Simulated scan of single mutants.
Amino acid sequence: MGTEGDVVWRRIVAIVIDVVLIGVVSSAITGILGQVRLAFLGSLLGLLIGFGYYIYLEGTYGQTIGKMALDIVVVTEDGDPIEYGPAAIRTVLRIVDALPAFYLIGIVAVLVTDRKQRLGDIVADTVVVRAGETAGMQ
């Protein structure tokens, strides 16, 4: 059956952890490059780091550092590990899920869908569950 409903608060905390980590790294890079008048390049690198962070970690492990800390994982709707394609779809749609502010669209979608999926999950055919509880999902 899966445990999608059990992970809503864990997902929110994981997002906060991930955003803080990405923000710290991006700010440091932008600050360093800003010293040599390349702040725009730093901002661009920060954006690429953010996208790369989610795509690589979720595509490789099914988890970001935030998800690892909260013991949740992204899997296909059948319970299989996700690959880079679905990870990329989820990541690009974070832009929409984050609108108009504070992940409002994503949070509303999670609260109203049966499998607690944000828009990125729905399009990528993924769910977020507790780690280790993916066997036998349908």
Rank of each mutant, 00 (worst) to 15 (best):
L38D: 02
V20N: 11
T64C: 09
R94W: 08
F51N: 01
L21W: 05
A135W: 01
V36R: 13
I89Y: 06
R10P: 00
G46I: 02
G136I: 01
G34N: 07
Y103N: 14
V25H: 11
Q117P: 01
G46D: 05
G79L: 08
S27H: 08
Y56I: 06
L111R: 08
T64L: 10
L44H: 07
L70C: 09
G42I: 03
R11W: 03
D114H: 08
I65Q: 09
Q138I: 01
A88C: 09
E133I: 03
P81N: 11
D121L: 03
Y54N: 05
Y56D: 00
G52I: 03
D18K: 09
V8W: 13
A101L: 14
D80M: 10
R10A: 15
T126I: 06
V96T: 05
T30P: 00
K116S: 15
I89P: 00
V8G: 02
D125F: 01
V108N: 10
Q138A: 15
L57V: 04
L45M: 15
P86E: 06
L45Y: 07
E133Q: 13
Y53T: 04
T76L: 10
A88H: 05
T126P: 00
L99T: 06
D6E: 15
L93K: 06
L38W: 04
V74D: 03
T64K: 11
V16I: 14
I65H: 09
L119K: 11
L70M: 15
L41C: 03
V123K: 07
G31F: 12
I122H: 05
V96L: 15
I12K: 09
V129I: 15
V16R: 02
L41M: 12
E83D: 14
M1T: 09
D114L: 10
T3W: 06
V19C: 11
I95E: 04
G62P: 02
G31E: 06
A28F: 13
T113C: 12
I89T: 12
V8R: 14
G62W: 03
G5K: 15
V96K: 04
R118A: 15
R11Q: 06
I49Q: 08
G85I: 13
I12S: 07
L44N: 05
V127R: 14
M137P: 00
V128A: 11
M137H: 09
E58V: 05
Y54E: 01
A101F: 14
D6T: 02
A135Q: 10
G23S: 14
I15K: 12
T3N: 14
V92F: 14
A88D: 04
G2K: 08
I12M: 11
G132K: 08
L38M: 15
G85R: 15
I82E: 05
M1D: 12
R94Q: 12
V73M: 12
R115E: 14
R37Y: 10
I65F: 14
G106N: 07
I12P: 00
R90L: 10
V25E: 06
L111Q: 07
S26H: 03
R130T: 02
E133F: 04
A135V: 02
R37P: 00
G34M: 08
V25G: 12
D18T: 03
A101T: 10
I82D: 04
P100G: 11
A101E: 08
R130M: 06
M1K: 13
V92P: 01
I82W: 03
D80I: 00
K116F: 07
T3A: 13
I22S: 11
F102H: 05
L70W: 01
